[in-house]
Each structure stands twice: as structure tokens, then as C-alpha cells.
Amino acid sequence: MTRDLSKAVTVDKLTKKFGNFIATDEITFEVDKGEIFGFLGANGAGKTTAIKMLCGLLTPTYGKATVAGFDIYKQTEKIKQNIGYMSQKFSLYEDLTLFENIRFYGGIYGLSGKEIKLKAKNILSKLKISELANKKVRSLPLGWKQKLAFSLSMIHEPDIIFLDEPTGGVDPITRRQFWELIYEAADNGTTIFVTTHYMDEAEYCNRVSIMVDGKIVALDKPSELKKQYSVDSMDGVFQILARGTSVKG
């Protein structure tokens, strides 16, 4: 199988059923290389299931998909080497120092000691926390932890990074600083696949998809979606599309 590098993610009628329940229902979309792709939906709409399939953690019931040019059925190991993942729940090891965390994650992806040292230096100086290298992660404010976790999820320079509600609970300034890190990564050619419940963050994406009951009901640039539904914010779009679904269990 030749590896198609023009698209970061291609998904074709991807479906996952749990018994009678259809978690994702023939979803189809593509994500361009270097794009910031917002993956929105109400709780229980099927986002997590879709992300798990794309990361190679869950086998689809049927449908096709490639991530970084690799097939999600046959090349899950390759996919894992070429993606990064970070969620709000993704936690650094609190009882290890910043540097020890970096060394651990670098080690996982097979970086040499020299490379790790270099990476550590770059990451910490970029986040302006070089002097904290030997401090325990526990002592770090939440915002810094999130930013460090994001940097660590990119330590192996993945093609795509999946961010699952990365900014939950952080203060408004840190949230924006975090998005600047995202922009920077995208500018460097990394594809960003992000979920969020902050609708203003949806506006920061190049394109967004909105999932309702396992189906993608909208997929476009935020500006186009707002025009289409005649509202002035993504929150308005979301309220129109997703309302009525949340009363389901």
C-alpha cells in the first residue's frame, strides 16, 4: 500500500456499533496537512469513539480511514508512531521532575539521550520555564502542566496531534497562550485535530465538523457555518444543530 501524504486524515463511511447502538454512523471527512480541524459535538455524540478509532485503539465495524497515510486496520503500530495525543486527563507524572517527564516520553519514542537533552532544552526555554527543569511537576500551576503536556505529546515530531478538550479548566489567558502553541505547531506543518466545549475556540479552527448522534451534520469553515445558519457565533451554530439531542440519555 502506498502512503498518501497529501491528506493527514481521510475517513470514509467509518462506522462503529456497540451491539444495537451506533456510536459513529458512516462519518466521512478529510483533514488537510497542517490544518487545525475542530471536532465538535455534544457529550455522547460519538466524538471519543471516532478519535479512538483514528488513534488505532478501537477497530471500526466497517468503513475506511487513513491517518498520516496509514490504514487504521492494518497499520495501527505505524499510526501510533506518527501521532501525538493529549487530553485534559492526560497527566504528567506528578512525582517526577519536568526533565524526568521529558526523558521518559522521549525514551518511549526511542529518542537518544542527546536528542532528549536537546528537546528538553528547547521545550523548557520555549515555555520559559528552564529554571524549573528539576522541580517536580506537582509544583507547577495547571496551565503550565497543560502546555508542557502539549509539548511532550509532540516530542517525537508527529504528523498529527489529537487534542481532546485540552483547555478544560484553565484560566482565560493560559487558554489563549495554549492556542498560540497550537497555531505555531500548525504553522510548522503539524496537523491539529482538536475537540473542545469552548465555542469561542471553535472559531480558532480552520474548519470544524459538528457531530450529532453519531453523524456529522455540518463541516465547513466557521465563517461559512455562521453565514449558513445566519448567526454571529459558533455557539449559535452549535445551539441550532445540537439542541434537541442532549435530552437523549
Binding site: 459535538g41 455534544a42 457529550n43 455524540a45 485534559q88 478538550e165 478544560g168 479548566g169 466545549h197 465555542m199 455557539d235 452549535f238 445551539q239 445540537a242 439542541r243 439531542t245 442532549s246
Partner: peptide, 14 residues
């Protein structure tokens, strides 16, 4: 205490 954290925008509004 943070009743709406992690809850989608529609449910939050409700």
C-alpha cells in the same frame, strides 16, 4: 462546584 465542566454547550445552557 463546577456543575458544567466537561459538559457540551447545549447541555450547559439547559
Amino acid at each position: 462546584d463546577e456543575p458544567t465542566t466537561g459538559v457540551d454547550a447545549v447541555s450547559r445552557k439547559e
